[in-house]
Amino acid sequence: MENFKETDLKQLRPGLWATVNERYPGSMITKTDFVPLARLKKPLPESRIAFISTAGVQPKNSLPFDTVHPVGDYTFRRVPSRSKPEDLEIHQLKYPTVGAKRDLNVIFPIERLQELTEEKIIGELAPNFFSFIGYNMDALKLEQTLAEDLADAVEAEKPDGALLAPA
């Protein structure tokens, strides 16, 4: 199996990358160490799938994400995968939530994933999905704290595969 080579590195949207780096200096980092490709070990109809999102989606009445902190919030929330959209809310300042307010599935497609499971296209959903906010200005802390904590929490759900979605 061919793995990613450093020579293949290509910034898909260099203009956007430069703009964000200008507005939030140093916040855009370059990663050159790609993890090996991990394949599903079971067919999808037998697999347990997790979903992880930076959309800042959380159960109502859970501690809101800290959207005001100048350096960001390095916590995550568990979102029970059986939740209904009306049980959830978004705390996130930095992306347009106009569509999500009318239909959460545009950014956190929980109902579509539930339907695909009912139809047996997906074996089952992990008991919890996960969400955090993307405004994190300390990339090292993001990697060493949030990403590590989140990886442990996801692994505890014993998924066979995970879908990761930005906001």
């Binding site: 569509g99 599935n105 497609p109």
Partner: peptide, 17 residues
């Protein structure tokens, strides 16, 4: 903010997943 499509367009949301 709309990585899975547009509101109430279930078919598109499903296709992306």
């Amino acid at each position: 903010g709309h990585h899975f499509g547009v509101p109430r367009h279930k078919e598109l949301q499903r296709r992306i997943i």
